[in-house]
């Protein structure tokens, strides 16, 4: 019997051992307090943040940073909005200084309508950032060629999209995501983007993904804190199911009650 206790089941991006398998975005919440409550309810181990232009008059960055520090979770800055490797590299360097972390969620966007990753720019930026000591979390697709190059560049984790960012459509290409999981059994894989419901997150975990990253599904729920709890439960359920070992699917029915000993009734036809 394998050891399936929770203590023996850590998510370890770049050697950082975490109990949680949820990475939660911090954008679009109705208020800072609901953001705080949602992060707590979700039991997320990592929150994602961004960098944006700071107005000298308003200086809103410090207030947000004070709130994030109080959450007591790890911070993963992103390069959201970058369309070239050069932009992403400069943003990553600014993030490293600002957040005092080697972690960077690397996004190089190819198309503003789909927000799909520019895999060429992504690999180029990943190569440069890894060489500069960054620990890169690349937002990528299920493309195995790009994945190989990201790993060669020095990435130790891959984050394929489930569906376009903010679409809430779940896992669009289950076959390719299963292939990716099977192709890299030892590489930490995180579904990043497209998760719209706790069932999507549970499915990702049942498929063997190591974690999920989401934002809009919680922030835009009618009750974000309750939805955050729902995701925590779903991720735990999906992970437990994966570790317990799902039954094999069959094409035809198979009775669950014993066949042997089934009473045989003989009715008279009178």
């Amino acid at each position: 019997m394998p050891d399936l206790t929770k203590a023996n089941d850590k998510f370890s991006p770049y050697g950082r051992e975490l109990d949680s398998r949820l990475l939660l975005g911090t954008a679009m919440y109705p208020s800072p307090d609901i953001l705080r409550q949602s992060v707590e309810a979700s039991q997320a181990g990592i929150v994602t943040v961004s960098l944006r232009r700071e107005s000298a008059r308003k200086q809103t960055g410090q207030g947000f940073w004070d709130l994030v520090k109080k959450l007591g979770v790890d911070v993963l800055p992103n390069t959201a909005g970058c369309h070239t490797a050069k932009e992403a590299i400069t943003t990553a360097l600014m993030a490293r200084e600002l957040f005092d972390t080697k972690w960077i969620k690397l996004e190089v966007i190819a198309n503003d309508d789909t927000l799909q990753p520019d895999l060429f720019g992504l690999v180029e930026a990943a190569r440069e950032l890894c060489s500069q000591g960054f620990e890169v979390f690349p937002y990528t697709t299920e493309d195995l060629g790009a994945a190989d190059r990201l790993l060669e560049a020095g990435c130790e984790i891959l984050m394929p999209w489930g569906a376009p960012i903010g679409s809430g459509r779940g896992l669009n290409n289950i076959f390719a995501l299963e292939t990716m999981r099977n192709y890299y059994p030892e590489i930490p894989l995180v579904i990043d983007a497209g998760i719209g419901a706790p069932s999507h997150a549970a499915l990702a975990m049942e498929m063997g993904y190591d974690a999920v990253l989401l934002n809009t599904a919680v922030a835009k729920a009618a009750a974000p804190v309750v939805m955050a709890q729902a995701f925590a439960i779903a991720i735990d359920a999906g992970r437990k199911a994966r570790r317990a070992g799902l039954m094999e699917q069959r094409d035809m029915a198979s009775p669950s009650s014993p066949v042997v000993g089934t009473p045989s009734f003989h009715f008279s036809e009178s």
Binding site: T26, Y29, L51
Partner: peptide, 10 residues
């Protein structure tokens, strides 16, 4: 010149 600060992000 770009001057940036921490902000909410996904």
């Amino acid at each position: 010149i770009e001057i940036v600060a921490p902000r909410q992000g996904g």
